[in-house]
């Protein structure tokens, strides 16, 4: 039988993979300069922050990217730290910015999460973050130590989670209402995905009736994810997404191919490649 925690984790994984964590605008940032070393007492100028991308007139700073990378530790199911790159973080920020801009434009009544709901979800988070195991995050002291180790605060986590809930609710309203999961879909998932998974672990599969609700939720999230991806792609194509820093050039949509540092960085057609800094026209 699928554990409730596993179902929740899968649900969270599906949404968070697209939405990402709350963006860096709401949190105090860490310096784009390496946080590990302190600059000397008297030093040559150091770049403290800069604009790395412009999304329909809104800017993403390098400190936003650094924040996003720090908050990636909260992403459950994160298997490979090597995937926590600046490019991936920027990609998530771009997607989130586009969604927030659309939320503002469509003037949908935004769902505000209550303090209890946020607290409940953070409690659940503390139990599910893999890295939390060594800090014993279930205990407040352990949780505080975990946050301190990653230069995070409780207030930042709450603010981000509040925004996350609002965004997820928007996505559900925007896309979920039109998605229909049939009994045949649930049945197919049960036989083709769930039963083999249990068979691998030499465990008897739970009855279909007991897990159909959870399977419905997973399938709903999967389809919403697909619709969301298509929607984000069209927003990028129709809007203006400019990557100003070549270092982030490999941020892209599904077809975003790696290109050399000299190539014009682009997130999608229809956007301006951006000028060479300091170059004369």
């Amino acid at each position: 039988m699928l554990k409730a925690a596993h179902i929740s984790a899968l649900t969270l994984l599906a949404a968070l993979a697209i939405v990402g964590l709350a963006q860096g605008q709401a949190a105090s940032g860490s310096s784009p300069a390496s946080a590990a070393s302190s600059p000397p007492a008297s030093s040559a100028p150091v770049v403290l922050d800069r604009v790395v991308a412009v999304i329909n007139g809104g800017v993403i700073l390098e400190s936003d990217v650094e924040n996003e990378m720090r908050f990636a530790v909260l992403q459950p199911g994160r298997a490979n730290p090597a995937q926590n790159t600046q490019q991936n973080a920027l990609r998530r920020l771009i997607d989130r910015d586009l969604i927030l801009q659309q939320m503002k434009a469509t003037r949908i009544v935004k769902r505000q999460a209550s303090a209890e709901e946020i607290h409940r979800q953070i409690e659940s988070l503390r139990k599910s973050i893999p890295e939390c195991a060594q800090y014993h995050c279930v205990a407040q002291a352990g949780w505080n130590a975990f946050l301190a180790a990653h230069d995070l605060t409780e207030e930042q986590i709450e603010a981000r989670w509040r925004q996350r809930i609002t965004i997820l609710a928007f996505i559900q309203t925007r896309f979920g209402a039109g998605v229909r999961i049939s009994d045949a879909d649930i049945d197919q998932y049960y036989r083709q995905d769930l039963v083999p998974e249990f068979a691998k672990r030499h465990l008897p599969p739970p009855p279909l009736g007991s897990v159909s609700a959870r399977i419905h939720e997973i399938l709903l999230q999967q389809r919403v994810n697909v619709l969301l991806q298509d929607w984000l792609q069209s927003l990028k194509e129709e809007g203006s997404v400019s990557i100003l820093s070549p270092a982030y050039a490999q941020v892209g949509s599904a077809e975003g191919a790696a290109s050399g540092p000299g190539a014009e960085p682009r997130a999608g057609p229809g956007a301006d490649p951006g000028p060479d800094p300091g170059a004369e026209p």
Partner: peptide, 29 residues
Amino acid sequence: DPEKMRDSLRRLYATGLYQTIQVSGARNG
């Protein structure tokens, strides 16, 4: 204040007068 510095960077970019913009600091003690 890092937050104020970031806010200032955004406001300056919002003027539309910059293609790119960054803030750098030189420390002395």
